[in-house]
Write a protein that binds this DNA or RNA. Structure first.
Lengths: 195, 195
DNA sequence: TGACAAACATACAGCATGTATGTATAGTGC
DNA sequence: GCACTATACATACATGCTGTATGTTTGTCA
């Protein structure tokens, strides 16, 4: 017989994992809680014991996705020392990782609409966007780039890549679209360079 | 007694106008069709006579918003002849116009989530994004800029501005955020310039 | 070991969408 | 000008989904 703490952790993890798959497949609105708990092997009573609402469960899924994404970017850039290269590799890692349907549908499409832009942005700001901002800040501090505003640059680039991901994903030739995106991104970033 | 054509046009216009306000205020999910038709002075029977679903009504609203937005950009840039200035003024017009709550909530947040990214993107591509792309294409044809890919550049810039709009709207000092965004945008665009 | 609280399951209420059906009126052919 | 048809709605209902209230089992701890 399992301890209560184990049971709690196991049930929550199962619910989040199943919810992630269901939300990714059907979208938030068309993913029924009844279906989620059925696949997870519990009832809706369990769901509402751990989460205050369907939206609360969704919030937990978004948070997990954001952490996963940030972790992948950290792994990809950990061994890079040159800050400029680190930014470029980080951007490429973000674009590649975001080709997962989970991240697109939940993290980019439903996330802002369901949680509201501010709440979603807050979750993003604690993860992958934080990496982007600190990278830009570091380049600015080093005098390598001179953006008129680090915040504005961060939001513009974050938005640019979020949109690019969705475009790449549905492109006829995703690999080609990805390469083109990286190339233009480099051009755009070069515009921030100190003259 | 009004003609059927007049009646049809009037009822549809009323429904779309009320729906636009309700969707903007409560968001798509929390805007009840019963409330919409009540304010519009009809019943749900009328709604389902003209639109195949709540989503169909929403689609019509998004299309209207996109047309409005494109029209505003066209008005702002009509008198500009220099293509580079035209692009910059167009971007500023887009950012300013998008500060409307209707456009943010319906056009940027709920739109992609409800209609799906491809359908939403298609509507956008017929309106404001088309203006952006043709402007970039023209600059490329003139040899003023040399983007590695016009499509990629268009999507990156479109996404950048969509995100920027939402950031600016909730900023403590929106005017300052807008100016900073324009400044960084100019820097980024200068990176596309022919060396 | 017995009380208490956590971890669920069950049952129900309420709301929202979509559909099926009914009705009045404008339009049209004769 | 009159019967007929189709349009423009209104009404009623069936269905599905969320959230809540309540009941039951089981680990935990004094």
């Amino acid at each position: 017989m399992p301890t209560k703490q184990e049971q709690r952790a196991a049930t929550m993890a199962k619910l989040i994992a199943v919810a992630r798959a269901q939300f990714a497949e059907h979208g938030y609105a068309h993913a029924a809680t009844e279906q989620i708990v059925q696949v997870a092997g519990v009832t809706r009573g369990a769901l509402y014991h751990y989460f205050d609402s369907k939206e609360g469960l969704f919030r937990a899924v978004v948070a997990e996705i954001q952490r996963d994404l940030a972790q992948r970017i950290i792994s990809a850039t950990a061994s890079i020392s040159d800050p400029w290269q680190q930014l470029l590799v980080g951007c490429r890692a973000f674009l590649s990782a975001s080709l997962d349907r989970d991240i697109q549908r939940i993290g980019l499409l439903d996330g802002p609409a369901i949680l509201g832009w501010e709440a979603w942005r807050k979750l993003d700001a604690e993860n992958s966007m934080r990496l982007l901002e600190s990278s830009i800040q570091q380049l600015a501090d080093s005098g390598i780039i001179a953006p008129a505003s680090v915040s504005a640059a961060t939001h513009l680039l974050s938005g640019a890549m979020n949109e690019a991901v969705l475009w790449i994903a549905q492109a006829a030739e995703p690999q080609q679209a990805l390469d083109a995106t990286i190339a233009v991104l480099e051009q755009l970033l070069s515009g921030l360079r100190q003259d």
